[in-house]
Simulated assay, not measured.
Amino acid sequence: MRVLLTGAAGSIGRVLTAGLADRGHEVVGLDVVPQPDGVDGAWHTADCADADAVADVFEAEFAESSLDAVVHMAGHPGELSLPDSLTSHVITTAALLDAMVEHGVRRMVYGGSNHAVGHTPRAGLPDGLLPVATRLRPDTFYGVAKAAAESLMSLYADRHGLDVISCRIGTFRAEPSTVRSLATWLSPDDCVRMVDAALTAPAPGFAVIYGISRNTRRWWDLAPGHALGYDPIDDAEDWADRVEGRPEDAMENAHVGGGYLAESMRRPALDRS
Rank of each mutant, 00 (worst) to 15 (best):
A63G: 09
S85F: 14
L152P: 00
A95Y: 09
H160R: 12
A51D: 13
D196R: 03
R2P: 09
A223Q: 06
A149C: 04
E248C: 11
R246H: 08
G112N: 11
D235T: 03
S177M: 12
A250Q: 06
V179D: 02
S85I: 14
D221C: 08
A8T: 07
V39M: 13
W239A: 10
Y260W: 13
W239H: 11
W185P: 08
A8C: 12
A42H: 13
M73W: 09
S113R: 06
A133E: 15
G38L: 11
P224E: 14
R214C: 11
G257L: 00
E102Y: 04
L228P: 11
C48S: 13
D52R: 15
R137P: 01
A69H: 04
S264G: 11
Y230I: 03
I209K: 05
S213I: 02
D56Y: 05
S273G: 15
D196W: 10
G257F: 00
W220N: 07
T6M: 08
E175T: 14
A53P: 08
D127G: 14
A116K: 09
G257K: 02
T178N: 12
R193D: 08
A42T: 11
A240G: 06
L182E: 00
G75M: 05
V27C: 04
V90P: 00
S11K: 11
L186G: 04
G29V: 04
T87D: 13
M251D: 12
A133F: 11
A149I: 00
L186V: 12
L96P: 00
A174Q: 14
A94F: 14
V71E: 01
P204S: 14
A9P: 07
A203D: 15
M73T: 13
C48G: 10
E263H: 15
P247Q: 12
S187Y: 06
A123Y: 04
G19Q: 07
A51N: 11
H255T: 15
G170M: 08
L186D: 06
A51R: 12
V28G: 03
T87M: 12
A9Q: 07
W219T: 03
H89F: 04
D190V: 06
T140R: 09
P126C: 01
A46W: 10
P188S: 10
A51H: 15
F58N: 02
Y230N: 03
I165S: 04
L30T: 04
R180G: 02
D234F: 11
A262V: 11
M251N: 10
G143M: 07
R135V: 15
S11T: 11
P247D: 12
D50M: 07
T92F: 00
E61S: 10
V33G: 01
A95I: 10
T45W: 07
E102H: 09
Y230S: 03
H89T: 02
R266F: 07
L162E: 09
R159L: 15
D139S: 15
V144C: 06
P176V: 05
A53M: 10
L20A: 02
F62K: 01
G170E: 10
E252N: 14
P121S: 05
P126F: 03
I209Q: 01
V70F: 06
L96W: 00
P131K: 03
E61Y: 05
D234Q: 15
R14D: 06
E175Q: 13
A133P: 08
G13T: 10
G229C: 12
E64Y: 05
D238T: 15
Y210N: 12
D163F: 05
P268M: 08
